[in-house]
Simulated scan of single mutants.
Amino acid sequence: MLTLVTGCRGRVGSTLVSLLHRGGHAVRAASRNPGELSLPPGVPSVACDLSDPGTFADALAGVGSVFLYAEPSHVTEFLAAARTAGVAHIVLLSSSAVLGPDAASDPIAASHHAMEQALGDSPLTTTFLRPGAFAGNAYQWSESFRSGRPVELPYPHSRTSPIDEADIAEAALAVLTDTRLRGAAYHLTGPESLTAAEQVGLLAAASGSPVTVRTVSRAAWKESVSPSLPEEIAEALLDYWATTAGSPAELTGDIEKLTGRPARTFAAWAAGHAAAFRA
């Protein structure tokens, strides 16, 4: 069965393509700009812009399963094209944010919630992967590490269970290739509950770059990220960190259930990506 992987410029999508290809599974890599992809030899690419329905038919031709990113603007057209093409199974990279009480209006969860609603109403078999905080979110601190400045945190004791993107890709591989795992929703977490300050400490140990944590106000943090982060997203993140400060993050065993081994630790992620945090 040919699998279409969307969002192949992302860490999860690019890793999943390599895993499928290495395992002998037919895979097609999709991106808005396929010419910019770096793919394993022999993996074909195709233009697929989830905000442009005109790209759907060619991308889906001959496809049996899809790994789909959460872009809801034309999900109805995408699902119609998928049915026409004979797609049997869609794996959605959703978010654990949809488990919150106000997911439909939460600016972080809304797009994922809309996708899950549309796919849930579709006759296509759908599997939802709902990861929490990506380990790769730590890259937001890399410039502070490299420049020797303190890492500024509005809620240094906010806890998450950061998950390695490689674990998400391996979970996707499992549900795409084992029919027994299809049609369910999986809440994907890392193996431990860590504060933001603890994550900074693990990165400092791995990179050998001494760094301090400085607590800043909500307003100061929001101002610092305003060039790259919309205000409503920044406010939602601040509210989330406020509610999780001092409370253990939820841990699930879904990575082990899907892959047969425990989720990778954040310390292991930090060791593997230490170069990005060295002065």
Score class of each variant (00 low, 15 high):
A109M: 14
A110M: 13
A110L: 10
S111N: 15
S111R: 11
S111Y: 12
H112L: 08
H112G: 11
H113E: 11
H113P: 08
H113T: 09
H113M: 13
A114M: 10
M115K: 09
E116D: 14
A118M: 12
L119Q: 01
L119N: 03
L119R: 04
G120D: 05
G120I: 04
D121E: 05
D121R: 04
S122G: 10
S122R: 07
S122P: 07
P123L: 11
P123H: 10
P123N: 10
P123E: 07
L124F: 01
L124G: 02
L124T: 04
T125H: 10
T125M: 08
T126A: 03
T126F: 12
T127W: 08
T127R: 06
T127S: 04
F128T: 01
F128V: 02
F128P: 04
L129N: 02
L129D: 02
L129W: 02
R130D: 00
P131F: 10
P131G: 03
P131K: 09
G132S: 01
G132P: 03
A133W: 10
A133N: 05
F134Q: 03
A135W: 00
A135R: 00
G136L: 02
G136Q: 00
G136M: 00
A138M: 08
Y139C: 02
Y139T: 01
Q140W: 08
W141G: 00
W141T: 03
W141E: 02
S142C: 05
S142E: 05
S142T: 02
E143L: 12
E143Q: 09
S144H: 14
S144T: 09
S144Q: 14
F145T: 14
F145K: 08
R146Q: 15
S147L: 12
S147T: 15
S147P: 06
R149A: 14
R149K: 15
R149P: 06
R149M: 09
P150I: 09
P150H: 11
P150C: 12
V151P: 15
V151D: 11
V151T: 15
V151A: 12
E152R: 15
E152Q: 15
L153S: 09
P154R: 14
Y155Q: 15
Y155K: 11
P156I: 15
H157S: 13
H157F: 07
H157D: 15
H157V: 05
H157T: 12
H157M: 08
S158T: 01
S158N: 08
R159D: 05
R159S: 07
R159P: 10
R159Y: 14
T160C: 09
T160H: 13
S161Q: 13
S161W: 09
P162K: 03
P162Y: 01
P162R: 00
I163G: 00
I163H: 00
I163T: 02
D164S: 08
D164I: 07
A166F: 08
A166Q: 03
A166V: 11
A166W: 06
D167T: 07
D167F: 10
D167I: 11
I168F: 00
I168E: 04
A169G: 05
A169F: 11
A169D: 07
A169Q: 07
A169L: 04
E170V: 08
E170I: 10
E170G: 08
A171R: 03
A171K: 09
A172F: 11
L173W: 14
L173M: 04
A174Q: 04
V175A: 04
V175W: 07
V175F: 09
L176D: 03
L176F: 03
T177E: 13
T177Q: 12
T177Y: 13
D178K: 07
D178V: 06
D178T: 11
D178H: 12
